[in-house]
Design a protein around this nucleic acid. Structure first.
Lengths: 241, 241
DNA sequence: ACCTGAACACCGTTCAAGT
DNA sequence: ACCTGAACACCGTTCAAGT
């Protein structure tokens, strides 16, 4: 089959009298599926970063004209959603809702850590599919936790906003590092240096945590924040009752 | 003075033999100050939104060539910093650190509500000046709250990540509304509609909060999240001691 | 109906030419 | 030293021409 397709293509080139067979106009046999496009978009985002996703580069990967793909924001939305969907499928429920929330949140964190572009995308699609997925997963556990109907929205959205904030900062730092052609740790080192040179009368606290910026454990910090919120929710609903 | 400047300009035009005096090449007398540029950038961002800040538009506002301004990311950083600095100057300390944190956080929220572009900018400048300002203001209160040295970073960064997450979602929703040429409430209405049409077996929770999405009080939700985290921090440090 | 890629409108940045 | 704006490289999107 591959051979006959090649012959056909050559035939077309011959008729058109093209001089360079390698520059032949190759027409795809089957239409591009949405899955294919999203798959290659993710591959491109993974290897080249956010800035690497251009229609030109994606067109080459899909061996098609750049015009065949359209609506960039929808494409990023779909790519981000695919990542979040995987987290949803992979996440296991714990013995308690607290543990389940921790596990799911960590799943998101790890996914974002691996693909900072997805964290940036998550911020730009308010109320869309990937957001719905996260709210659904969190909200179910919030219900199990015994949060009254009226407070479920508030509790869930608080967790969501925190997660999305961490994702965004993570993505922004990764992009900064990429721009500077540095590793993440080197960018943090540079920032830490700047912080430690701050005026100590104006910025006593920021100076004092400059060292922490270099040595902190991102994942542990993230989880600590989740715990603060979950504890806060638990205390609030118990004191109301 | 204004008159003599006009005469000089006309003189130049006459020498150069330009046919249309309105298209005269007008050269500024004093160099552009950074403050002027940032001031006009903020004005442009306020009236035209994030997409409205182009060097062409800014050049026209400053009556200069587009090449006179450079480095867009630094410009947005400076504009964002100016907004956060105002919040810092305006925010009053409460009787308790809890109240102070609430007051400052609300100051940030209100500023972002008024200028969604600043919320988006805040996400893209990890560790830079506006971020330092926020961490400093929060960290001081965290210290007063009695959080031990080792836990101050974790507590402060948790609050920060939450604030930045809300800012980002706020900005993203504002931009969505602008793109759709709708008011914020109309965009929320449309999203709510979509949520309520979700498959109830797959997304029971998201469906159940669709109504809340339309009617919720953003500011109250934001504050509730701040309270969750502050309570979580307080409980954690007290249970350790 | 869908692919194809040149054309288009726009963007930030660069830089030679001016003052 | 700094302004000025044409030139440049790049982007997403459009659309006539092709199959």
């Amino acid at each position: 089959l591959g051979f006959s397709a090649a012959v056909t293509t050559f035939h077309v080139c011959y008729i058109f009298g093209m001089q360079d067979a390698r520059k032949k106009v190759q027409r795809r046999e089957s239409r591009l599926s949405r899955e294919q496009i999203v798959f290659e978009a993710i591959a491109l985002l993974d290897t080249e970063g956010e800035e690497g996703l251009t229609f030109k580069a994606l067109g080459e990967r899909l061996s098609t004209g750049s015009g065949a793909i359209s609506n960039k924001s929808d494409l990023i939305l779909a790519a981000c959603d695919a990542i979040i969907a995987r987290v949803q499928d992979a996440s296991i429920t714990g013995d308690t809702p607290q543990e389940s929330i921790r596990a799911f949140a960590l799943g998101i964190f790890d996914a974002i850590h691996e693909r900072p572009w997805a964290g940036a995308a998550l911020m730009r699609v308010p109320g869309q599919q990937p957001v719905i997925r996260i709210l659904e997963s969190l909200g179910r556990e919030i219900r199990i936790l015994g949060v009254p109907e009226d407070e479920q929205w508030t509790a869930t959205i608080a967790l969501f906003n925190y997660i999305v904030g961490v994702s965004g900062q993570h993505a922004a730092l990764a992009q900064l590092a990429r721009q500077q052609d540095l590793k993440r740790s080197e960018s943090l080192e540079a920032l830490s240096q700047t912080w430690s040179n701050l005026d100590s009368s104006q910025y006593p606290f920021a100076r004092s945590i400059a060292e922490k910026l270099r040595t902190h454990d991102d994942r542990a910090d993230f989880l600590a924040g989740i715990d603060f919120i979950v504890i806060g929710i638990s205390v609030t609903i118990n004191s109301v009752i």
